[in-house]
Amino acid sequence: MRYVSVAVAAAGVLLAAGAVTYSAVAGDDGPGVRPPSADSADAGFARDMAVHHQQAVEMSYVVRDRTTDADVRRLAYDIAQTQANQRGMLLGWLDLWGLPKVSSKPPMTWMGMGRMPAGEDGALMPGMATDTEMRKLGSLNGRQAEVFYLQLMTAHHKGGIHMAEGCAARCTVGAEKRLAQGMVDAQQSEIDLMAGMLKERGAAPRP
């Protein structure tokens, strides 16, 4: 199977959201509207998804150096670039809103979820790889690295979709809600793509 980039759709979301970055400060409702509060879903999603995205970027750069497969390297590059750009946008909105990038509350509190169970080995949010899994990815090469990356990223995307759907339902800033929905659509497309790539390699997503 030849990999066809799905980053084009994601790029459109980024351009649309970037065009209204300033209006996002005012919740898309014009001047005089108060920006989101530090405890809002808008701020919580921006903080948590920035952390979630950072790990996806790290995983993608790791596998890029562990395989010569053109399709996996292209997918990893697209994921790294798209999520790095989205991460910058989310952190930029926090700056524009005058809100901290770190919260004293556990991740996912804005979705009504508490701290991840003890012993999750560095996995701060649903779908995130553990520290042990990240070390394992960095120790593999070739086909083994490809399969493990595709499995980890599939789980990572599923967790990201869960968070993005939460923002689409709970956030109040129009630009952020649109970005979140764009994440849902793009990452689901990549999950479908990765399922095919895993099948080609005699593997499947992890249960």
Rank of each mutant, 00 (worst) to 15 (best):
Y3G: 01
V6T: 15
A9M: 14
A11Y: 14
G12S: 15
A16G: 15
G18F: 06
V20T: 13
A24C: 11
A26M: 15
G32P: 07
A38D: 01
D42N: 03
A43P: 01
H52Y: 09
Q54H: 13
Q54T: 10
A56H: 02
E58Y: 07
V62N: 12
R64C: 10
D65Q: 15
T68N: 12
A70N: 10
D71E: 14
A80F: 01
A84C: 08
A84V: 02
N85F: 05
G88A: 11
M89I: 11
G92V: 00
W93Q: 00
G98T: 04
K101A: 13
K101R: 15
S104I: 07
W110Y: 08
M116Q: 14
P117C: 11
A118H: 11
G127Y: 03
D131T: 15
K136W: 10
K136D: 05
L137H: 00
S139K: 10
E146C: 09
F148Y: 15
Y149P: 01
M153F: 04
G159E: 07
G160N: 06
G160T: 03
G160E: 02
I161A: 06
I161F: 06
I161T: 06
A168M: 09
T172K: 01
G174S: 10
R178Q: 13
M183S: 00
V184C: 10
A186F: 04
I191V: 15
D192W: 11
D192F: 09
L193W: 05
M197D: 05
M197N: 05
K199V: 12
E200S: 14
R201D: 07
R201Y: 11
R201L: 15
G202W: 12
A204P: 06
R206M: 13
